[in-house]
Design a protein around this nucleic acid. Sequence first.
DNA 1: TCCGGTCTTTGATCCGGATCAAATGAAAGG
DNA 2: CCTTTCATTTGATCCGGATCAAAGACCGGA
Lengths: 248, 248
Amino acid sequence: MSLHAPKLAPRDCGDCQIRHRAVCARCDSDELARLEEMKYYRSFQAGQNIVWSADRMDFVGSVVSGIATLTQTMEDGRRQMVGLLLPSDFVGRPGRAIAPYDVTAVTDLVMCCFRRKPFEEMMGTTPHVAQRLLEMTLDELDAAREWMLLLGRKTAREKIASFLTILARRESGLKARAPKGQITFDLPLTREEMADYLGLTLETVSRQMSALKRDGVLELEEKRRITVPSFDRLAEETGDDADGGMLA
Amino acid sequence: MSLHAPKLAPRDCGDCQIRHRAVCARCDSDELARLEEMKYYRSFQAGQNIVWSADRMDFVGSVVSGIATLTQTMEDGRRQMVGLLLPSDFVGRPGRAIAPYDVTAVTDLVMCCFRRKPFEEMMGTTPHVAQRLLEMTLDELDAAREWMLLLGRKTAREKIASFLTILARRESGLKARAPKGQITFDLPLTREEMADYLGLTLETVSRQMSALKRDGVLELEEKRRITVPSFDRLAEETGDDADGGMLA
DNA sequence: TCCGGTCTTTGATCCGGATCAAATGAAAGG
DNA sequence: CCTTTCATTTGATCCGGATCAAAGACCGGA
């Protein structure tokens, strides 16, 4: 709930870059200045809920650091993660007050926010901001549909491999289509959270991780730190065609 | 491929209403006239492919009559439907030339189309069109995420019930939240297509339909014509909370 | 009317992943 | 250092839905 002032001068700080890239790649300096005035920071603790399903969500923004998830839950407690927010990802629904899912910080998290109403007003006067948001939403929709294929048709092993492929790709340079060679990265999620993302149980996730390790597809120094000796070898396990799945 | 002239005067025809509702709820008459000039019609036969995955898609538009599907396919033939297009639904990706899925007519189909390029240009000059498209895309995204919950966590019986609930709701007045009493409608899809939508096999779909019939949740006069004696009874089977799942 | 094809139902069996259960490991606090 | 707690691994068993197989049901065409 607390509002945090940026720690660096606006024009220099990395956060602004992120905000700028996420929201508008083409703002002129006037618009940039208006965005600059509007923005504020919010911090959340690991495990803290940011928005509850069916609650009002009066801001939009992007993740500066940390990880957040979008989840849907059934009455009896069955959960399905429907989105994973990594640094530079955008959250929020311009034009929508109510989110149909929970947003939760899974690690300590800092977000760069804009109040929804004034942001929407700016959207009405600067057409390319609306177009940029449309682009981002289409990207999310593509990702969601790719995920539907995973949830509906892939085996447990393919699901794990697909998930790790996305993380590995993200780690080795933003959006690099098919990274080469060895990649090391941290797992941001517990086995249970991975299970919720992949439509599995935590035991199955654990077993399949062990199996992939046994088969030399990955190495686990610590439980949450992964090395993939060969990205291509991992990608073969996803069931996607060779050029690599998550095409946007 | 053929272009079809509208059968009625533009201002009177039902197609225009559909197009108008789908694309822009707030056009003034100048913009309406521009849209009117741009639009054309295309017909497709049942089973015909409209766009292939990874092919260019040089138009956007809305379904006038008939049913189309969006599907993703893995190399080995596993298929997952990622969208179902009913009359008045919008298709197309302004700003995107390439679709990452197949679009297929499952019945004979008529679409009201606009060429993508000029449509995009109009989007740039009339901000509320971009906003309208953003709204529609957010709706699709919500639906996709709801579907992720279904694919990842629901039982076969719940999947079928959820699917029928959507059709029943759609049948009894567009977007009516929770229709009352008895509803009769046609199944637009074969058992196999339903299976591809729900992440099941056609045998499981058939068995669960039989089970729901045996339990009095639905009646099957013909194989593809369904009567739901009580919408609420059906909704109970979906696993969603009482107010009815697919909240937008 | 019969025939061939497609869609659908139903039965029998199998298997991948869920469930139940227990042990191990690793970090946090007294 | 020991206890507590939580994440993870691993084992044993079960079950829902997949797979394999066969038999209707329906339709259009000869």
